[in-house]
Design a protein around this nucleic acid. Structure first.
Lengths: 213, 213, 213, 213
DNA sequence: TATGAATGAGGGTTCATTCAT
DNA sequence: TATGAATGAACCCTCATTCAT
């Protein structure tokens, strides 16, 4: 489609594209080296080398080293947008929906692992990042999940639990699994794909056998 | 022979005590400022001022700034030792035991929050710390929990689940709750004490009402 | 292809030249302040100020303060390369050759005095430097001198002395004169140019008058 | 002999002796570690450990770290006092006297090697030490040697050379041999005892065989 | 007098950022 | 716009010296 555009526009857009590509290259490089060595042990030069640009060039795209983190977080937010079809599935059977939602979540975590590893340590330390992360990673799904569970409670499919707290626990679970992954827990990593099913079972039906205690 | 030299012994022990107090003061100061500002944004001078000692004094007690982190982690490990009476409670009713264990766990997290906040960001970044943290914070309880659940499975009180994975999930849950706490989640913080009960319920009986499926 | 881009080449080479000049300026500054105040009493800031650059700039050219010493030693080695025409003179009359060689040596010492003063104290202290200095300053001339004297012994122009030891003594003499110079011996400094002749006389003919004892 | 002294005096003198012993122990320790690691790389603690005293104790005997160097130099001066019997030998045959004097000199160097190694690097760097060393190590013998050679010139046993300069050269030779020794020259070290004879021969009779030119 | 912990000034080095080319 | 050298503030750590015990 670009082919049909006038040359001047094309040239501009090519430049534009080059710029965006370069920006992405820098950001990817930052994610990689941050994830590998941590934010503080990473120098601008490390990133520049990895992105194959000069040190100074990075400052044509990002205001500061910290700004790279913020940009990574934004990129993560993009990746992390809850897909529309999940909304649509809300009316399915509860178990199916929960399973789908969990599986989707686990996959996101897996995909974003590197970025998360790059960002997370700084999240604990930096007020601004912490707030963003909390809003985006914790609250976003909470606001989806909470009304859903609330509805299930009201319709009697679920015990009359403290919905807000349950939501926190589910959130916490995913955060915890992410952390365990980053910490290198091998068993978890190996069985990552089986987690959603087990999780759904536990959440909905508990550990005790159907016959119950 | 020391008995005949009470003064010398006394003097020695007073010095010894002074030294230990000072070491503790430094460590506490480190925990506080690390937790407040993060490891890298904390200078040795910050710690020294907080502990009300000279910069150099810190190096009479710790080899390096990093060594302070390691010492904090060791202190956390001490705090975190699983109490003997918990072992004793294993033969109780499952729900009671789980509840007790979870409550104990939550309390530990609460107590150690500052230290954890000081340590955690570096845990992600530093190989050595990561390993220690994983061994001590993740595996330690797993090795307690896993055989317990295994036993319950074998005795038929619990579904035939993947015990190792369930253990991971429980672990992950606590780690996640810790992280949420550190991230400043207010609802969770407010209802912290109610978490164990809810958690036990969910884990054992699931969300679905007893009428269930 | 470069031929068509004179400006680029020129620009590159100008930069290159600037860099080399700056490196030399730093090295000269280091030699000066090391010589004046000694290695340890000299700070990087002293050198930077003397070279009129920022502290950090020095580290764009040298890895460490110690590396400056090593570079100085290398520069000394360059200065100290035995000139080819001296080799050519080996077939002259022995007295003439020795005189020429000594004179050349004395001049080198004079030229390199500042660098030697900067380096020497550390040579005694630092294994690596000691080895380099020994190889370059002691052995280099020994390997030139020794076969020469050996030849003279064999041809009967010289007594059957222990050639290796004589070489050492001659070496030691130059080192000693250097040290005396550095120590500030004024009489020696004043008559520096007359040393080669006297030295040649002593070495070849001894103190005793021609009639001998 | 102390045995016959009254107890009070004896006690005092015992204390005195203890003090002197301790001072000597400290000084020896300083010489050893300075020689091994250099002045700057040696810490007061190193010396204290080697002397088996506490850090602070050293300051009861010496004003400063630098003062230890000065004391070492004084000790060297003691060792280095030209023995009276050498004076007596001045009327011997010239060759015998020179040989004796040289041998005595070489032995002094050998004995004082460690102290010299400890002191020398700082001599180049520190004005005060340099002056002391020059006076004591260079001029002292010069003032002995110079009139002697002068006398030999006047009595016709020696060519009409520049006596002052010859003296310097002889001085320089010993300094140079010391430096070569410290630099670790093995051949020289192995044949150290043969140096005086060779040196005397060279100085008096030159390299050329008796048949001469 | 001996001890050894406390002190804090000092210095080598790093690295985010700037800017001339 | 890209480059990469220059900058200099910042910081960890050392260690000579002091001093309370």
């Amino acid at each position: 489609m670009d082919r049909s555009e006038p040359s001047s526009t094309a040239r501009t857009s090519r430049r534009e594209r080059l710029k965006q590509e370069r920006e992405k290259r820098i950001l990817d490089a930052a994610a990689m080296v941050f994830a590998r060595n941590g934010y503080h042990r990473t120098t601008i030069r490390d990133i520049a080398r990895q992105a194959d640009v000069a040190d100074g060039t990075i400052y044509n795209y990002f205001d500061s080293k910290f700004d790279l983190l913020v940009a990574l977080m934004a990129q993560l937010a993009d990746l992390d947008r809850m897909p529309a079809d999940l909304f649509a599935a809300r009316d399915q059977d509860m178990h199916d929906f929960v399973l789908t939602a969990f599986a989707e979540r686990m996959e996101r975590i897996e995909q974003g692992e590197e970025m998360l590893k790059a960002i997370l340590p700084q999240v604990f330390v930096h007020e601004d990042l912490r707030e963003r992360f909390y809003q985006q990673y914790v609250l976003r799904i909470a606001t989806l999940l909470e009304p859903y569970i609330q509805g299930q409670v009201e319709s009697g499919h679920v015990r009359p639990v403290d919905v807000s707290l349950v939501t926190r626990l589910v959130q916490g679970m995913f955060v915890g699994l992410l952390v365990l992954r980053i910490l290198g827990d091998q068993p978890l990593r190996n069985q990552w794909d089986e987690v959603p099913k087990l999780l759904a079972t536990l959440l909905l039906d508990g550990l005790r056998g159907e016959g119950g205690a």
